[in-house]
Amino acid sequence: MQWFLDASTTGHKIALMVVAILLFAAVMGAILFAVDRPRRVPNWIVAAGFLGPTLLLLLVGLVYPALDTIRGSFYSRDGSQFVGLDNYATVFTTDSFQTVLVNTLLWVVLVPLVTTGLGLVYAYLVDRTRFEALAKALVFLPMAISMVGAGVIWKFVYEYRPDQPGVNQIGLLNQLLVMLGMEPQQFLLNAPSNTFWLIVVMIWIQAGFAMTVLSAAIKAIPDDIVEAARLDGVGGIQMFRYVTVPSIRPALVVVLTTVAIVTLKVFDIVRTMTGGQFGTSVVANEFYTQAFRQFNVGLGAALAVLLFVLVIPIIAYNVRQLRLAEEIR
């Protein structure tokens, strides 16, 4: 047993890794073998075999903590007393909360739309060109950089230095402004535009994801559709508008949804770049601050529940798409 828990040498670690994967494969194989009785087993048992392990993990790892969070949001800061809706009242009556909510909405609307839009246009433009591989790698690159790295990268874009003799700009944007004969700007200081500068960072990171998925979807468009359109004299922007976009609609929904949810949860960018100051905070950042900096578990839980609520419109939209898809099928 100890062999499975304490791995300290490289060989041991790698062996453990291989054993873990094999063990996992064996368990899954056994489950599938057990349910694989064509035509005699009711569907739900087969489904249980396919879904069981996933649902079990999700129940323990996500559903239970989520329910516990909802419960905790009705309790006091250390979870000892039931306080009803007090935490929610606190959230909604805090002066700065309106700003936080507006910022969050800005993030959740702008990031998915712009990311998906840019990813789509870019994927379409470089599709089947000579430079496709390189062009995609460049936009994908930010995905491979950790949040810490991204924070440093953008620091060297937004950093402000005064326009004085002997002082050099070290932020790229301000250098450009100075070269154009303008005053350097405090990009991260001045609300509300600072929120947009932070949103740019998130778009920069996520565009690679959107591009990859959408590019694949574009490639899956049956050629005969494209050919038929071409024979009808459709080309350029019209082709994009009337053939490409409608054809990859499901992929667009998936990308929009995924990016929106990721955006809702993201707080690293705000935390590392402004610390949530200067009117840039978002709900996820407030949640983190309350739960892990000020240890107000109740209030933190209430903010997390607010995130759950904010995702409902996204879910509703997906349910609708799912229904539409079922009908077509």
Binding site: Q186, L188, L189
Partner: peptide, 13 residues
């Protein structure tokens, strides 16, 4: 303030 760093506001950045 803010020697070599800008206006008062630059303290915050």
């Amino acid at each position: 303030v803010n020697g070599g760093l800008g206006e008062v506001q630059s303290i915050a950045s």
